[in-house]
Computed example of a mutant assay.
Amino acid sequence: MADTLIWTGSYTVDSGGNGKGIGALLARPDGSLEPLGLAVACDSPSFLAVHPALPVVYAVHEHAQTVGVYRRSGSGVTLEPLGEAWTAGAAACHVAVDPRGRFLVVACWGDGQVLLYELDADGAIASRREVEPSRDPYDAGRPSRAHATLFLQDGRIMTTDLGHDLLRVWDYVPGKGLEAAGELALPKDSGPRHLAQHKDGTVFVVTEYSIEVAAVRAGTDGRFELVSIGPAGASEVSDGDAAAEIALSPDGRHAYVGVRGSSRICTLRITGGPAGDDGTGLEPVADTPSSGDWPRHHLVHEGWLHLAHERSNDVVTFSLDPESGLPAGPAARLETGSPTALVVGGSA
């Protein structure tokens, strides 16, 4: 195993945070973290994505309602703006890059917009397209709250709408943008937030409000159906809890859910067989204190779990037991202002 570069998003003073912009840190094979400094100063880059082939990083500037493009300068970790920032929507909170590097998708929590930005050969933004607005499947008059994007194994795109309890599926059509290819309503007021796809095709969705994990899977006709939904954690939900991120272990045996409020990381065992039988489900194993305040995002990498604590201003690292999947530690702690996202950025 080699050292790994991790880019860190943050909340800055415009959002009441203590961050300065996009940071960089080095994760070593022994689990230790080394700060590499501020890569670029910018306003509240609350979520990040990395181009699959180019030294380019994308950031949503949540308070400024823009999406920025940054190119790595030389062999160091300095980032420089690649063109002007583009307009996004209210509280743009998530950005994801097409695995082929053709476009970005940005989700906006404030106004529910899902936006597509096509990229040029240098990774810069070339155009911006809006998509069809979400409609509340429960007709309850609730605001739309788009929150995350996942590129599916079959080439389609799935987005979450936390306000409408909705998963939306899209096809990308070059020159036209995203075209609706289906949707699935989750239980009312569950609040689907982030999501991850298992190697067997099942998509696991963490729900912010109900603190659950839903398993959904596409049938032979391509339409997604709800396979199961159950508690994210082994312990009771506390007042003020809000689920955040979900990540899967590389071997597909465990899932990890961060819960803000009670500040814990929930380990779940992935059960069931391959696609085609009665489904892949999740069984809560144990909850572990996250050793910080408000675990907003986390990253599973090379046998380690790195947790970004927005309110205690640190990144905490746990080792993961290869058999039980349970985190142990913490093994390392790195102070950094209001971290909100951790994204692998390649070699240092």
Rank of each mutant, 00 (worst) to 15 (best):
P339H: 06
P187V: 01
I270C: 02
R333N: 13
P327L: 09
V114C: 09
H194I: 08
A242Y: 11
V343N: 01
S312W: 04
G303C: 03
G23L: 03
A49P: 07
A247R: 15
R193D: 10
S46F: 02
I270G: 02
A39G: 15
R135C: 03
S262D: 11
H164L: 01
L115N: 06
G17T: 06
G230K: 11
V95D: 03
V105M: 11
M1S: 14
R142F: 00
A140K: 14
T149Y: 00
D251Y: 01
E283H: 12
D241M: 03
E118S: 15
P45T: 11
E323C: 01
L167R: 08
A214I: 03
R260P: 04
W170E: 02
S312D: 10
E335I: 00
P137L: 07
R296S: 03
L167G: 11
W109H: 14
E208K: 05
S228T: 10
S44G: 04
G346L: 00
A328Y: 07
A243P: 12
S127Q: 07
H298C: 00
G110M: 10
L79V: 01
H63D: 05
L342D: 05
I157R: 08
G68M: 01
D293Y: 08
K199V: 15
L282I: 14
R72C: 03
V237P: 00
D154Q: 06
A244P: 09
L119F: 08
A255R: 02
R135K: 14
T87C: 04
D14K: 09
G272Q: 04
D321C: 06
L25Y: 07
G276W: 05
I6G: 06
V343S: 01
E34T: 15
L226Y: 05
A232G: 15
V57F: 12
V173R: 15
L104Y: 00
I125W: 10
R145L: 14
L195F: 00
R269A: 15
G110D: 07
L326S: 02
S324W: 00
P45H: 09
T271G: 13
Q197M: 08
D277S: 15
A185N: 10
S262Q: 15
I157Y: 04
R72A: 13
A126G: 04
R128S: 13
T317F: 05
L82N: 11
A126W: 01
L334V: 02
A27H: 13
V257G: 05
E84S: 11
D314R: 13
A126K: 15
H51G: 02
G276R: 06
L33S: 11
E80C: 02
S319N: 07
L119R: 10
E323M: 08
H297P: 00
T288C: 09
V216M: 03
T220C: 00
D154K: 04
D14F: 09
H164Q: 13
E323A: 15
G276T: 09
E310V: 08
P52S: 10
G123W: 07
Q197N: 05
D278E: 14
G123N: 06
L38G: 02
D293I: 00
V77C: 12
H306Q: 06
D239C: 00
R129N: 09
D43V: 08
A96G: 14
H164Y: 08
L152E: 13
A243D: 09
R269D: 08
R129A: 11
S347T: 14
G240L: 11
L82F: 08
L150N: 10
G16V: 07
A27F: 02
W7E: 03
L167A: 06
